[in-house]
Design a protein around this nucleic acid. Structure first.
Lengths: 191, 191
DNA sequence: ATTATCTATAGATCTATAGATAATGC
DNA sequence: ATTATCTATAGATCTATAGATAATGC
C-alpha cells in the first residue's frame, strides 16, 4: 500500500512535468529526457512508469478528462451555466501553463495521424453538445438573436479556444475574461 | 533571366511542398528531407535554396503575409467588409490543406521560443485592428448589442480561428461557413 | 564565374530494449 | 518476488557543413 502510494505519487509528478514540457515545446518537441530530468529520473527510469512516449501523452489526456468532468463544480453530465463558464475563463486566465499545454496540443492534433487527434475530435463533439445544453437551459429554443442553441454552441466553443490563442500570444493586449464577457453580451443580445 | 526564373520557380515549388509537409506534421515534425523528396531533390539540394530549416519557415510565413495582404480583394490597408469575410471563410472551407498548415503553426507558435511566435503575435495584433475597422465601418461606434468595435474584434477573430479547429477535426460535423454566418447574425443582433 | 545538385559525413538527439543492481514487502 | 532505477546501447533520424561535379551564362 505504501509502495503503491509512492508509485502513484511518482506518476503524478511525471504527469505534471510532462504537462510543463509539452507547454514549452509541444508534444512532438517534448523529449522523455526533459520530462525525466524535471522529476530527477533518467529517461529510462521514466519508462518504468510509462512504457512509451505516447502512453505518457495518453495519461496526460486522461487526466485532463478527469479534471474536466470530475471537477467539483459540475457532474459528468455537466450542469454548466453561462456564469460558471465565465468563472472558468477567469480561472484559466490564472493558469497560462495549462492553457498553453492544451492549446499547443490542439494545434498539433490537426496534423495527420497525431496521437491526440481522436481525443480532441471526441472532446469537441462532447463540448459542443454540452454547450448546446447550457444554451438551451439559459435561453430555451431560441437565443435573443434568433439562433438555436445548436447554432450558437460551436461559436461559444470557438470563442473560448480562439481567445486563448490570442491571449497566450499577447497577454498584455488581450483581456481574455473581459472579452468572454463581451461575448456573453452578444449572446444575450444587449448589454 | 531564364536562370533566375527557373530558380524562383524551384523556390516556389519548395515552398508549396513545405506548406504540405507542415500541414501533415507541423513545423517541428516536418523534416527537410520530406520537403526535398516532394520536389525531387536531396535534403542537401534543398539547402541550396533555403540555407536552414528556419529560413524555410520564414519564407512560408512571408508568403502567407503576401497572400493575405496582396490578395486581390483588398489592399494592404484592408477594405474588408463583413460579407467579404464570409466569402473568405467559404474559400477556406475549400482549402483544408492551407487551413491545416496555419492552424498547426498557430498551435505550435504558443510554445516557448517557437520561430513563428513573433509572426503570429504581430499578425493577430494587426488582424484585430483590421477587424475593428471592419466593424466600425459596418456598425459605427456601437454594435446593436452595445459592444464597441474594439470589444467585438477579438471575438470575431477568435471565432474564425476556433471554427477552423473544430472543422479540421470534424469536417462532417461542423459546417464552418454556416457557423460563421450564424456569428454574423449574432453581431447584427437579429436574424 | 555562377548556379544547381550530389555524395559524404560530423555531431546531435531521440526512443526504446536489455540487463544489472538495489531496495521493499511478504 | 516485485518494484524502482540505473548503465549500456542499438537503431533511427535530423540538421547542417564540406567539398566535388556538372551545367549555364558571359
Amino acid at each position: 500500500m505504501a509502495v503503491r502510494a509512492r508509485s502513484e505519487e511518482r506518476r503524478g509528478d511525471i504527469l505534471r512535468a510532462a504537462v510543463e514540457v509539452i507547454a514549452e515545446r509541444g508534444y512532438r518537441g517534448a523529449t522523455l529526457g526533459a520530462v525525466a530530468e524535471r522529476v530527477g529520473l533518467t529517461q529510462q527510469g521514466l519508462l518504468h512508469y510509462f512504457p512509451s512516449k505516447e502512453s505518457l501523452l495518453v495519461a496526460v489526456l486522461e487526466e485532463r478528462d478527469r479534471w474536466d468532468t470530475g471537477g467539483g463544480s459540475r457532474g459528468a453530465a455537466g450542469p454548466w451555466r453561462l456564469d460558471l463558464l465565465d468563472s472558468l475563463v477567469e480561472y484559466n486566465a490564472m493558469r497560462p501553463g495549462i492553457v498553453q499545454t492544451f492549446s499547443a496540443l490542439l494545434g498539433e492534433s490537426v496534423t495527420d495521424g497525431h496521437p491526440a487527434r481522436e481525443f480532441f475530435t471526441e472532446r469537441y463533439a462532447q463540448v459542443r453538445a454540452e454547450m448546446t445544453a447550457v444554451l438551451r437551459a439559459e435561453f430555451g429554443e431560441r437565443l435573443p438573436s434568433g439562433l438555436t442553441p445548436e447554432q450558437a454552441a460551436p461559436l461559444l466553443t470557438a470563442v473560448l479556444d480562439g481567445l486563448q490563442y490570442q491571449w497566450l500570444l499577447a497577454p498584455e493586449a488581450v483581456d481574455m475574461p473581459a472579452a468572454f464577457r463581451s461575448f456573453l453580451v452578444l449572446l444575450r443580445g444587449t448589454a
